[in-house]
Amino acid sequence: MAIKIKIEFLGGLDIISNSIREHKVTVPFEEGEATMKDLINWITKNIISDPKDIPVFIENETVRPGILVLINDTDWELEGMEDYVIEQGDVFTFTSTLHGG
């Protein structure tokens, strides 16, 4: 029905979401069914304020290389990446590694 989660944009990536770093949101997904892939899709439609910023976040239908993704503070590469199944209370952190030296 709906899953409550937190989404964070760090390391300068908040430029794609009106400079808001932390988003507490309820996503209209069925728990146990929705994956990271659905969430990424949802983010591009509901959080990214300007459609022309979508390529800053997405490349080849996944998160752009150069953006570090953490699921509950764990590298998403250890959590199945796009196939991770979303749970209540999850925290998703997207950090740009490209911004500012």
């Binding site: 760090l10 390391g11 300068g12 430029i15 570090l68 953490l70 503070d73 590298d75 952190t93 950090t95 740009s96 590694t97 911004h99 500012g100």
Partner: peptide, 17 residues
């Protein structure tokens, strides 16, 4: 480097020039 800064909660600035 980014992970280290993140886990150690280091205070850094990331706005682009």
């Amino acid at each position: 480097i980014v992970l280290y800064a993140h886990y150690k909660k280091l205070d850094y600035f990331s706005t682009e020039c």
